[in-house]
Amino acid sequence: MAIAHGVAGTQFRSPSLPHRNVDRSGEGWATLHTDGGFVLAFQRVEDHRPPRWPDSAHPQQFHLDLGVKDLERAQEDVLDRGATLLDEGDGKRSWRIFADPAGHPFCLVRD
């Protein structure tokens, strides 16, 4: 059984992404509790097929835009933790697109 590791995966937590804790409260579940009170839940899935952004034949299951104060530092943090840079843009826009270690796309957006 594959686990859809996402932003909640302990190997992927980043100091640039404020969170209180990651709770592995049950078999096949992990939840990420943010400093602002927002909670994200991630569930184990059978035969997980990772997305291949922007390929619609392998669509994303979700998309997160994560606000960060320092885009350069946040990029370094997530790349060091296994993310892949998918689209850096033209260097002028305020966001960049990445994939987490399981292939789920997300954006870091400068606050």
Score class of each variant (00 low, 15 high):
Met1Asp: 01
Glu72Trp: 01
Lys69Thr: 13
Arg93Gly: 14
Ala30Ser: 03
Thr10Phe: 11
Ala30Trp: 09
Asp90Trp: 02
Phe12Arg: 00
Pro101Trp: 10
Thr84Leu: 07
Gly9Val: 00
Pro15Asn: 12
Asp100Cys: 11
Pro54Thr: 15
Ala8His: 09
Glu76Leu: 10
Phe62Cys: 02
Gly67Phe: 15
His104Ser: 09
Asp65Trp: 01
Pro15Cys: 15
Gly37Pro: 07
Ser25Met: 04
Lys92Thr: 11
Val7Met: 11
Asp55Ile: 05
Leu85Ile: 11
Ser25Phe: 05
Ala102Asn: 03
Gly36Trp: 03
Arg49Ala: 09
Val39Thr: 09
Asp23Gln: 02
Arg24Tyr: 07
Phe62Pro: 03
Leu85Thr: 12
Gln60Tyr: 00
Trp95Ala: 13
Glu88Leu: 00
Arg110Ser: 12
Asp23Lys: 02
Val39Gln: 02
Leu85Gln: 10
Val45Glu: 03
Asp111Met: 15
Leu86Cys: 14
Gly82Pro: 02
Thr34Gly: 04
Ala83Val: 10
Arg49Val: 13
Glu72Asn: 05
Pro59Cys: 01
Thr31Val: 07
Pro105Asn: 10
Asp111Gly: 14
Val78Thr: 14
Ala57Pro: 01
Gly36Tyr: 06
Thr84Ser: 08
Asp87Cys: 14
Gly26Leu: 09
Phe42Arg: 02
Asp111Pro: 12
Asp80Lys: 07
Leu66Thr: 11
Gln43Thr: 14
Phe98Thr: 07
Asp90Asn: 06
Ala83Ser: 03
Asp65Arg: 08
Gly9Met: 00
Ala74Lys: 07
Leu86Phe: 12
Thr31Asp: 03
Asp35Gln: 08
Pro54Lys: 14
Gln61Tyr: 11
Arg24Pro: 05
Ile97Thr: 01
Gly89Phe: 08
Trp53Tyr: 15
Ala8Gln: 05
Ala30Ile: 03
His63Arg: 01
Asp100Ala: 11
Arg96Tyr: 05
Gln61Val: 14
Ala57Met: 08
Val45Ser: 02
His104Arg: 02
Thr31Glu: 00
Ser14Tyr: 07
Arg96Asn: 04
Gln43Val: 15
Gln43Leu: 13
Asp55His: 02
Asp55Asn: 04
Lys69Met: 03
Gln75Glu: 12
Gly103Pro: 03
Val109Lys: 00
Asp90Val: 01
Gln75Ile: 01
Phe42Lys: 09
Trp29Asp: 13
Arg96Cys: 11
Asp70Trp: 07
His33Trp: 10
